[in-house]
Design a protein around this nucleic acid. Structure first.
Length: 83
DNA sequence: CATTTGACGCCAA
DNA sequence: TTTGGCGCCAAAT
């Protein structure tokens, strides 16, 4: 499988109300040092079936989102992943 | 095939 | 608490 597909598989398993960091996703995919590459992949994929808004930075900030950082923030708030 | 780019992560000032 | 710098890796060009 490709790095991309591995990442998507992992992200698809993130339950509502839960968040993982880019680094965590990379580690779960078997690429412990590829945190940055994870963002590169999520960025090029617009598949809404993939809850990529649940992937945030290790320092607690949200990072980015291909549909706007505000949308990401709002989604997480609705799911209770914030506060 | 060689470079550049960037939704990262960590540490020193 | 902010900045700045560096290592890392896959995608895009």
């Amino acid at each position: 499988m490709t790095f991309k597909s591995d990442i998507f598989e992992i992200v698809k398993t993130i339950p509502e109300g839960r968040t993982l960091t880019y680094g965590e996703v990379a580690r779960l995919a078997g690429h412990p040092r590829a945190a940055r590459a994870v963002g590169a992949v999520l960025k090029t994929n617009f598949n809404l079936e993939i809850p990529c808004h649940r992937v945030i930075k290790a320092d607690g900030t949200l990072g980015g989102y291909n549909r706007g950082i505000e949308q990401k923030k709002e989604k997480l708030r609705l799911e209770g992943a914030l506060d």
